[in-house]
Simulated scan of single mutants.
Amino acid sequence: MISIVVPTLNERARITGLLESLSALPGEKEIVVADGGSMDGTAEAAEASAFSGRVRVVRCGRGRALQLNAGARAARGGVLWFVHGDAQVAPSSLADIALALSEGCVGGFFRLHFYDADDRFMRFVERTSHTRARRFGLIFGDQALFLRRDVFDSLGGFAPLALMEDWELARRLRPLHRKGLIRALETPVGTSARRFIRNGRLRTLMKIHTIKALYILGVPTETLRTLYEGRRGEKGRDANP
């Protein structure tokens, strides 16, 4: 069984549609929503949805690493698939995961697609993100990582970081990536470009790369989260750095 872990924070406008599409995917699955203290009724909307029989909601503290780990602990499947709360998934997603695992892979990720900004700049971001992950194993959360449960557990899950928890886990997965055991799927997973739209495309991309560089230089992730979210404390729910 594939356990679909969905970390959420103030995603009420999108969560019902996502749960509907996940519930409709063919294949044995469960859905675990790990809510980090939403103030807009996201958790309640997930519990009250028509798909509540297939959805469990775990309430925990804020922080994507904390939420992902809480969801993984509650999951019962032998495979974990981490899907952001603003995602749009392809109908073949579970079948594609199962095929990759049947061919000896222990995990993988999807091809990033911005469903609300189809322009040349955003297509450039999509291509470079997929190339980076495919060639160097640097996988971010909006690329919908999936892993065998035993591999995830052996790595100790996500590190308790305020930001860049996906980069840090990807770094520990790189030996498996070099062996060809992490599959780069061509199946798209949609994510929102709302941060790019709201704050400017080039400005947002440069900010993301700056945060990456500062992380490599050892700047604390609490500081990086403040920089990423901005002075008004924007929720870190958009496409990750």
Rank of each mutant, 00 (worst) to 15 (best):
I2R: 00
S3M: 01
V5T: 04
L9Q: 11
E11D: 15
R12K: 15
T16Y: 00
E20W: 06
E20K: 14
E20R: 15
S21G: 02
L22A: 06
L22P: 07
L22K: 12
A24L: 06
P26D: 12
G27P: 06
K29F: 12
I31P: 01
D35P: 00
D35F: 02
M39S: 15
G41P: 04
E44H: 04
A45F: 00
E47G: 10
E47Q: 10
A48N: 14
F51L: 04
S52K: 05
V55I: 14
R56L: 13
G61W: 01
A65C: 15
A65L: 14
L66M: 08
L68I: 11
N69C: 06
A70R: 06
G71M: 08
A74C: 09
A75V: 06
R76V: 08
R76P: 02
G78N: 10
L80R: 13
W81Q: 04
F82S: 14
V83Y: 15
H84T: 15
D86F: 08
A87R: 09
A87C: 12
A90H: 15
P91T: 03
S92G: 07
A95M: 11
D96Y: 05
A98N: 13
A98L: 11
A100E: 05
E103F: 02
E103L: 14
G104V: 08
G104Q: 06
G107R: 10
G108C: 08
F110K: 03
L112Y: 03
L112P: 03
L112Q: 07
H113T: 10
F114M: 06
D118C: 07
F121D: 04
R123E: 07
F124D: 12
R127W: 13
T128H: 08
R132T: 13
R134V: 01
L138K: 15
I139K: 10
D142N: 10
L147Y: 12
R148G: 09
L155C: 11
F158P: 01
P160A: 05
L161F: 02
L163D: 00
M164S: 08
E165C: 13
E165W: 00
E165Q: 14
D166M: 05
L169A: 07
A170E: 03
R172A: 14
L173P: 02
H177L: 02
G180A: 12
G180S: 12
L181N: 10
L181E: 13
I182N: 11
I182Y: 10
A184N: 09
A184L: 06
L185H: 14
V189R: 05
G190I: 00
T191N: 08
A193I: 07
R194F: 13
I197S: 05
I197C: 05
R198E: 15
N199P: 00
R201P: 00
R201F: 03
T204A: 07
L205S: 06
M206W: 08
A213T: 13
T221F: 04
T221A: 02
L224H: 00
E229M: 03
R231K: 13
R231S: 14
R232M: 02
R232D: 15
A239C: 02
N240G: 05
